[in-house]
């Protein structure tokens, strides 16, 4: 049965629209199946890394974690992964500085102990050692 000529154009538009809707739905389903686990994994990693951060840095990265969780809830998995990856990169960079700071602090503590063994007790508050120890999260 041949379609009348005047119906061919509207029907092809409707078909195209249905095709687009179907493709979008399929893409959404495929995105959910493929990227949701990745986004969730990224969030878990971010959460684990935040736990070992010194206190002064926790606030900033916890805010980034909350943003990423919101994106996950909105099913914006790619954005969520991107946000998590940014935060993890920032944390990696920060942890390198923290590692150096903690190594420096341990070396200072050794020297302070040496001085103590020779009879000089360092006033930790006056030299600022107490406050930096607290910041690096390795106070005595």
């Amino acid at each position: 049965m041949a379609l009348p000529g005047e119906l061919l154009l509207p029907l092809s538009f409707i078909g195209l629209a249905l095709l687009i809707i179907a493709a979008t739905a399929i893409a959404a389903i495929w995105d959910g199946r493929r990227n949701r686990p990745r986004a969730e994994l990224g969030l878990r990693e971010l959460s684990d890394r935040i736990a070992i951060l010194p206190d002064f840095a926790k606030g900033e990265f916890t805010a980034m974690l909350d943003d990423a969780r919101t994106l996950l809830a909105q099913k914006r998995y790619r954005e969520c992964m991107k946000r998590s990856a940014e935060a993890v990169k920032g944390i990696t960079e920060l942890m390198e500085v923290v590692r150096q700071g903690r190594a420096e602090l341990r070396s200072i503590e050794t020297k302070v102990e040496e001085l103590r063994s020779r009879g000089l007790v360092i006033d930790r508050h006056a030299v600022g050692l107490d406050s930096v120890s607290r910041f690096w999260g390795e106070g005595r």
Binding site: L94, G101, V132
Partner: peptide
């Protein structure tokens, strides 16, 4: 935080 850490 990274700026704070560097200063620290």
């Amino acid at each position: 935080s990274i700026d704070v850490a560097r200063e620290l």
